[in-house]
Amino acid sequence: VFVDDHLLEKVLELNAKGEKRLIKTWSRRSTIVPEMVGHTIAVYNGKQHVPVYITENMVGHKLGEFAP
Rank of each mutant, 00 (worst) to 15 (best):
P34I: 13
G46Y: 11
Q48D: 10
I32Q: 00
P68Q: 08
G18E: 07
E19T: 07
N57Y: 10
F2R: 04
Y44P: 06
V59K: 13
M58Q: 12
G64S: 09
P51G: 06
P51H: 05
L63K: 00
E13T: 09
A67E: 04
P34C: 11
P68S: 08
D5A: 15
N15H: 02
H39K: 01
W26R: 13
F66N: 03
V11Q: 00
W26P: 06
Q48V: 14
G46A: 10
E35I: 15
D5L: 15
W26V: 07
T55G: 12
V59H: 05
D5V: 15
Y44S: 05
K62D: 06
N15W: 01
R28C: 06
V52S: 06
G18M: 05
A16Y: 07
A67Y: 03
V50T: 10
V59R: 10
K47W: 08
Y44R: 03
N57Q: 13
M58D: 12
N57D: 14
S30E: 03
V37D: 05
S27C: 11
E19H: 06
G64D: 09
N57A: 14
L7C: 02
V3P: 03
V43M: 02
K62S: 10
L22D: 05
N15L: 03
L8A: 02
S27Q: 05
H49N: 04
P68W: 09
Q48T: 14
N15E: 03
E65H: 10
E56W: 10
E35H: 08
K62H: 14
P68E: 09
Y53F: 13
T25K: 01
N45F: 07
E35G: 07
Y53E: 10
T55I: 13
R28Y: 06
T25S: 05
E13F: 08
L22K: 05
Y44H: 11
R29Q: 13
V50F: 10
K47M: 11
K47E: 08
V1T: 09
H49K: 02
V37R: 12
V37W: 08
D4E: 12
A42H: 05
E13M: 08
N15C: 02
E19Y: 06
H49S: 04
K17W: 06
G64V: 06
V52D: 00
P51R: 10
Q48N: 13
K20F: 13
A42Q: 04
L22I: 15
K10A: 15
